[in-house]
């Protein structure tokens, strides 16, 4: 039996779980589903084009810096004023922001996708026990693992991480014991931005172009992944995102040909089923209102 598709499914799942984490982190701290998150990945894509001729470390560093800067700007200018509004208002604010950034990119970079010179060093493939594994998949897996470990350490061992977790549990209480909400939320946006930049690098490494509309599908996956994984739970978010990527790739490989075009429909039907059985997500965090 050909197990190739499992390798691909794990690769996609790992990338999706990263995407989901970046979105879920901000949600858990301030209850905001940031629809503009996908646009951060899109901006990361354009940064890569801008920095394509630079050495690889400068490309990575530069992309992260640009995306984190935009992420912080978003928080300061758009989300801080509506922080105390209803979840619906925050959601619509983030949507308006996403629209703005998307159209800004369209005006700035043109309606046609910008070509991206491929990273030929990443498409090198290895054969292990009959399975073909590309460097890009290995890089994705290693990076995801490192980011997960890094995030776990950050949240558990550092001061800001512990403050972040406290705010996740109860923002009001955390503020009462002297945790500065502004700092914690800014920190969440920095981490979220960093993850978005890493996702951009891994995602666009295999693409041949970047378009102003690149961010849309990404945020949809992250959004859904975060909710079915379990809101407010980082492990849940990683799991939810992973399952979205894994199941989607599996459906594409295993469904009979004539049903394959409906893979998305099957995936999202499964999402509805999961929600009906577990409305709080697979791993529901305690005390999170859903």
């Amino acid at each position: 039996m050909n197990l190739q598709f499992i390798v691909d499914a794990i690769g996609t799942g790992a990338l999706y779980s990263l995407m989901t984490l970046g979105l879920a982190l901000v949600f858990s701290v301030m209850g905001l589903m940031n629809f503009a998150y996908g646009q951060l990945v899109m901006i990361g894509g354009f940064s890569i084009i801008l920095l394509r001729s630079q050495p690889w470390w400068l490309l990575i560093l530069g992309t992260i810096l640009i995306v984190v800067f935009v992420s912080l700007l978003m928080e300061r200018l758009a989300f801080r004023p509506v922080r105390n509004a209803t979840a619906m208002t925050m959601l619509v604010t983030s949507f308006a922001l996403a629209q703005f950034l998307q159209q800004l990119a369209r005006v700035a970079f043109g309606a046609n996708p910008k070509p991206l010179e491929q990273f030929s060093e990443l498409s090198v493939q290895y054969e292990v026990a009959g399975l073909i594994i590309s460097r890009q998949v290995i890089l994705t897996l290693v990076t995801t693992t490192l980011v997960l470990i890094g995030l776990a350490l950050l949240l558990r061992k550092t001061n800001i991480g512990i403050q972040l977790r406290a705010s996740t549990e109860d923002v009001g209480m955390a503020a009462l014991v002297g945790i500065k909400s502004n700092r914690v939320i800014a920190a969440a946006f920095v981490i979220s931005g960093t993850i978005a930049a890493i996702v951009a690098i891994l995602f666009f490494a295999t693409r041949t172009n970047v378009s102003w509309s690149s961010g849309e599908s990404i945020v949809l996956i992250a959004f859904v992944g975060a909710v079915i994984g379990g809101l407010g739970s980082m492990v849940g978010a990683a799991l939810g995102g992973f399952l979205m990527g894994f199941v989607y790739t599996m459906l594409n490989a295993l469904l009979p040909m004539e049903l394959r075009v409906f893979a998305d429909a099957f995936l999202y039907t499964l999402v509805i089923v999961v929600l009906l059985i577990r409305p709080g997500g697979l791993i529901a965090a305690k005390g999170v209102r859903v």
Binding site: I228, T269, V271, L276, P279
Partner: peptide, 18 residues
């Protein structure tokens, strides 16, 4: 209709995608 909050949002969004 048994879902509320974001779960309702995602449930209906998933239906739209389907």
């Amino acid at each position: 209709v048994r879902l509320s909050g974001l779960a309702a949002g995602i449930g209906t969004l998933a239906f739209l995608v389907v």
